[in-house]
Design a binder for these strands. Structure first.
Lengths: 168, 168
DNA sequence: TAGCAGTGCTTCAAATCCGAAGCAAGTAGA
DNA sequence: TCTACTTGCTTCGGATTTGAAGCACTGCTA
C-alpha cells in the first residue's frame, strides 16, 4: 500500500513513446527497403552486417551474434539456417569448442551486403537523420549510448526474484 | 541518382544503432514485465493504453489504433480479437460509418491497465530513465519528437495505396 | 575415470505476424 | 440511379518467432 505514485512526467512519457515509435517506424521502413533490395529481413541484415563489417575475419559464434542482435537463440538458429541456405553464410563447428558453431560470411554474403547497404543508409538518412542537425545526431548518440550500456548490463530475467506468481 | 557514396559517420551510425538497440532491449524488457503482470503483449498493452489513457471516451476506430501503434491492419484485427475474447475491449460498428469498427475499453480492461501500469513504469524508469538526467530526458524528447512527426508524414510504404484489380 | 552440472546450439509445437485477397459500405461522376 | 472506385476491416495462407525440451560437448570434482 505504500507504492509511491508511479507516475511519469509528460516529458518522460514523451521521450519514451517517441523512442518506441521512432524505432518502430524506422525499423519498418528499413525492413521494407531490405526486402525489396535484397530479399533480406532486418535480422538477416543485422547478422550479415555484424559479420561483414564488425567482425575482423568475417565470422562469429552464434551466441555472440544473438547477444549483439536482440534476439532469441532459436530464432537465430532459424535465420542462420536461412542465410546458409541462401549461400550467404557458412556454419562450422568452432575450432576451440566443439559444441560451439562459428558462422562465417561468404563472398556472396559480402556482395549482397554491399548491394543492400546504400539503400539502407539512404533510408536511415532520409527518415532519421534528415530532421536532425549534425549536432543533434551527436547529442542523440551521446545520450543513448550510456543507456544501451546500462541495459546490456542489467539482468533482464532474474531482476525480480521478489514475488512469486503461482500461475504458469 | 546523385548520391555518390552514401556513407554514414561513425557518429551517425552510433546514433542509429544505439537507437535500434535501446528500443529493442527496452521493448523486450517491458514485454516480459507485461506478460508476467497481466499476460499482455506489448501491442495489447499499447492498445489498452491508447484507449484507456489517451482516448477521452475510451474508444477509437481500428485504423486510428493501427496508425498510432506501428502495426499491420491484420495484426490489429488479431490482437483486438484476443482482447475482446479476454473481455478487455468491445467492438461495435462505428456510428457514423457502417464499415468502420469502434473499439472500446471495458471496465475490466481499465482495471487490468491500472494493475499493469505501475510495473510498466518502473521498468521504463529503471532501464531508460535512470541513466539519464532530467535534462537529458527532456533533450531526448525534444530531439525525437520532430523525427517521429517527420516519419509519420513521409511513409513511403503507404505511398502506393492499393493495387488495381486484374493488374499485375 | 566416472559422475554431474554448465554451456552452446538445435528441434519442436504453438503463438504471432504480415501481405494479399476478399467482402461490405461509402463516394464521386455520368 | 447506376457504375466504378475508394476505404475499413477481416480472412487466409504462409513465414517468422519464441520458450521449453533435447542433444552434444566441457569442465569440475572426487
Amino acid at each position: 500500500m505504500s507504492d509511491p505514485a508511479p507516475r511519469l512526467d509528460p516529458v518522460q512519457l514523451g521521450a519514451y513513446f517517441a523512442l518506441i515509435e521512432v524505432a518502430g517506424l524506422l525499423r519498418h521502413a528499413v525492413e521494407q527497403q531490405l526486402r525489396e533490395a535484397g530479399n533480406l529481413s532486418y535480422v538477416q541484415f543485422q547478422l550479415l552486417a555484424r559479420l561483414g563489417l564488425d567482425a575482423p575475419d568475417g565470422s562469429a559464434r552464434m551466441t555472440d551474434l544473438a547477444d549483439g542482435v536482440v534476439y532469441s537463440r532459436s530464432g537465430l538458429t532459424y535465420q542462420a539456417g536461412l542465410l546458409e541456405e541462401a549461400g550467404l553464410v557458412v556454419r562450422a563447428p568452432a575450432a576451440d569448442d566443439e559444441r560451439g558453431v562459428t558462422v562465417t560470411i561468404t563472398d556472396a554474403g559480402r556482395a549482397l551486403l554491399e548491394q543492400v547497404l546504400p539503400g539502407h543508409i539512404e533510408v536511415v538518412n532520409s527518415l532519421l537523420l534528415q530532421p536532425l542537425s549534425p549536432n543533434d545526431v551527436e547529442t542523440l548518440a551521446r545520450l543513448l549510448t550510456p543507456v544501451r550500456d546500462h541495459m546490456r548490463s542489467a539482468p533482464p530475467r532474474s531482476a525480480a526474484p521478489r514475488r512469486r506468481r503461482g500461475r504458469s
